[in-house]
Structures are given as C-alpha cells and as structure tokens.
Design a protein around this nucleic acid. Structure first.
Lengths: 258, 258
DNA sequence: CTGATGGCTTGATGTTCATCAAGCGTCGAA
DNA sequence: TTCGACGCTTGATGAACATCAAGCCATCAG
C-alpha cells in the first residue's frame, strides 16, 4: 500500500524521528510500507522473529503475553505509537503477541534500516534510547502497580488516570471493552464487574461504558495515587512518544536545572 | 575515593562502553568516583533526582518499589551491572529505591556526561539503546511471570533458572536471604516457606540455603519454563550487560542472518 | 419478530494468598 | 555461657481472587 505524504509527516513528527537528519529519515522510510488491518488481526506472535519496527498510525493494538493456555494483556497502544522497538534494536525474537483491537493503519519500517540508522546518526540513536527509557519506566510503573496494589485499587487508579487524561471531566467513557480492561488490570472479567460494584460506595457510577466519578476526593482516598506509579500526564493533541510521557515535570521543572 | 586502573578496565569492558571511542570513555569517566558502601545502605530513594549513572562493581544491590507502606523488590543486581540508566537518559526522577544488600563498590558516572556522550558518539548511544532494550525485555519477562503464574510456579521456575545459571549442578545455594527472594517473587516469607515445602513432593530438597533438585524432569513438568518468560542464559565469566542476556540465540543463531 | 450470539453481571463455591501468632534454630554481644 | 535478636518455619484464620454456572440485555441475521 502506498504511503501518503500526510502519513509520512505524522511519522516525521514522532519524537523518535523529529530530531534525526533528513538523510536518516529517508533511509529508514525508504523500504517502509503502510498496511491496514481488520480488528482482531494478529500482527506478531510471541516468539516470532521481528523484522520490522511497527508504527501505529490509526486504530488500537494490544500487546499480550501467554503462558500455559492463559493470556494477559501487557499494554494497549493508541496512535501514534511505535512498538517492539526493543526487539528491533537487539534483533531478537518478540516477547509479546501484537494484535489489533480495532481496524488499524500500521506502518512497518525495516528493522535492519533502523539499526543501520542508529549507527550512522547519533541523534537518532539518542531518540531511540529515550523512547526505550520511556517504555522501560512505563513497565516499572506497571509492575509496581501489579505487585503492590490489589484489584480494586488498580481499578480505582485506572479510573483516576483515565479521567485526567481525557480532560478531567467527571464523566467519561471507557476506551476499551471491559474484558480487555480486566486483562490489562490483571483480573478476571467477573472480578472487574465486582470491583466496579464495590466502587459504587466510593461515588463511582457506571452505565455501560460510561463512568462518572461523583466524589473524586473519596475515590482518591481509596486509590492513593502516586507519581511513582501513576503517570497522570494528560494526552496532548500532538503525537507523543513514551519518552515525553516520562519527562513530565512531576515536581518542579528541571529543563534548565543542570 | 580514587579509581584504580583495574576498576576502570572492568568498566571499559562493559558492553555499554566496550564499543565507544576512547575520547567518549575519557569524558564519561573523568568526573567519576568510586565509593564503597556498607550493607543496607540506601543509595537512592524512590522519587529522588538522579544525577549519576551507577555501576555496581562489587557486591549486591536491590531495586525496590514502595506504595502504601508496602514494599516489593523489583530486581536484584550482581556485578558488573549498571542501574537507573533510563532515569539518567531522560534526566528524570528515579522510580525505584536502590539499596545495597551486601558491602558494595559502586562507581558513579555523571548523568550529564552520559547524555553528552550519547549525543557525540553514535556508537555509545547505540550501546545505551541496546542496554535499555535488554532491561526492558527483562521487565517484560518479570511482568509476565507475575501476571501469568502462581507463587509455586514462580518459585519452581526461579529454581530451575538458578540451577542452569550456576552451572547446572543438581545442588546449589540460594544467593539471597529467603525473605528477599520472597519479595522478588512477589510473595510473603511465610508463603515462600510453604511453597518450598510443597516442592518437596517434586523432588526439591532444602537444607538452609542449600537447594538440591532431585528430579529435574518432575519439577519442569510443574514449572513449564519457556524462553518467552525465563531467560536461562548462563552467567559467563566476563562482565555482561542486560543486552547480551537477551541476545542469547533461543532457536538458531541469527548473528549472521541479515 | 424470532432466535442466536456475545459481552456483562451476579451468585455460589473453592483455591490461593496474606495475616496473625507461636515456636525453633542460629548467631553475635554482653 | 546466657541472652536477645533475627530469620525461618508452621499452624490457624480470614481476605482476595478464580472458577463455574446461570441469567440479563443489547445487537444482529434470518
């Protein structure tokens, strides 16, 4: 499928590429191709060799892990995001299965070209390192969330994070099916249901996918959110990488601090 | 404290630095200093500003996370390892507390110098990206381990991994206190004790910190280890980064594949 | 309209895990 | 040596969570 110039611009605007030279960008995107996938398509299977860096331009994709006939979703990606960067950098097998949740436009960049570009363009290599750092920190947050909090607390914090990211309005709509949310939060759909029921006592009303947080203070007292686990960075309009998410000045702006 | 040339050589041999130019290495190590810490010393607190890249030259350090008066250990590092690289790259606050478990020799490199070197030396920036990729994949494994397996299965797989990493002998000694191991595996010391008791039925004998795996096949049938979660890469003699750990050819050597 | 499907909810039940409490053994200091 | 501290173990109990089963409700094809 041909790449439209508009798509190319969106990729160029990614933090990953916004700083690299024109030559690097041309080299990396030369053999690229854009593809549209229907919902439920498996893009990459756990253990597959990874030949491409994927860029989600439109749609939603889920990263999941499997063991012993059980599966769990590790992350849910929205546009514009790259994924399986780490496997590409190391030229290793993928550790996660990638699957579309909705119809998605996905750009595929040659992994070999990426690695070549890193060696040639220090700015690009730095951008890759920054993106990876952001991904890493995201996972640290997820792991702490999983090991330190119980199911109800995870849901409460998810709702608070979602609220601020969607603009801060007291009522918003869940971006995914509840069964997907359950897997992301590390619980069964049944227990997610019960957790929502429990949160009624804390001012959380739900009607289908519509959620309204009636008494934020009460919910927060239960959730005890902290910047060491929860990243309340609002999703701004422009395309943003995982790195920028982590740059958010939690306490005091340090851009000129050192 | 003065840096001995021998220490400098060990750092130079790290995958992080083995490929970078002499100039870069000199720049990065110029303002470095080596420090020896007693056991139980907190090197860095969750949320602290991170000004240095730490390199563990000798000893053991634990990375832990905290929430609501609970704590959990996220990783245990052996020499030679770097830590909090991601925070350094992004010039962000640390997400984990770092504490020595034993007396440790730790080299501290200026974070600013690291970032400067990355911009100047593409080879170094690539090495940073590779190290971060290795750390990222390690966390993915940990998260899958945590979300998909139960406590006994986690212990069983830990023992199997430990066995192969320590040379494959049926009997070996646990490298940490059991309370630390429990926290790493995401359970209480009490339940770790009970899990060991359960594993007696699977041929696992324990006498203090000495563990012997009597019937490996039986234990494996319970543990169901998989390269998608467990990294059975043996710890070779030389200093090895997290990246090399992930480069292990799981199925077929691809070093010359592309 | 009818029926089937699939996501969600609710209840009943059992497993897993944490907590509380007590006891045992080892080690180190007085 | 004696005492106390600490790590580990074991038992009893309760909380959190998964599983199984049934039912509700919206959507959609026939």
């Amino acid at each position: 499928m041909p790449m439209r110039p508009a798509d190319l611009d969106r990729v160029r605007a990614l933090p990953l590429f916004s700083d690299c030279s024109d030559a690097t960008f041309r080299d990396v995107t030369a053999g690229a191709f854009l593809q549209r996938f229907p919902p439920g398509t498996t893009l990459l299977l756990e253990g597959d060799q990874v030949d491409f860096l994927y860029v989600l331009l439109d749609g939603i994709v889920e990263l999941e892990g499997t063991w012993n006939d059980k599966e769990t979703t590790l992350s849910i990606l929205k546009p514009v995001s790259t994924f399986i960067l780490a496997a590409v950098v190391l030229d290793a097998d993928g550790l996660m299965t990638a699957r579309t949740l909705e119809r998605s436009d996905i750009l595929m960049l040659s992994g070999e070209a990426i690695r070549r570009a890193m060696k040639a363009d220090a700015g690009f290599a730095c951008a890759v390192a920054e993106e990876l750092s952001g991904c890493y920190r995201g996972l640290v947050r997820t792991l702490k969330n999983q090991k330190l909090r119980g199911g109800i607390e995870r849901l409460a914090n998810y709702l608070i994070t979602q609220k601020v990211r969607l603009g801060g309005e007291p009522t918003f709509t869940l971006p995914h099916e509840k069964r997907v949310l359950a897997s992301l939060l590390g619980m069964t759909p049944e227990n997610l249901s019960r957790a929502f029921a429990t949160l009624t006592d804390y001012g959380v009303e739900t009607k289908g996918a519509e959620v309204t947080i009636g008494r934020p203070a009460v919910l927060e007292r239960l959730a005890k959110p902290t910047p060491m686990i929860d990243n309340h960075q609002p999703v701004k309009g422009g395309p943003t990488g995982k790195a920028q998410r982590e740059r958010w000045p939690v306490a005091g702006d340090r851009t000129q601090a050192a």
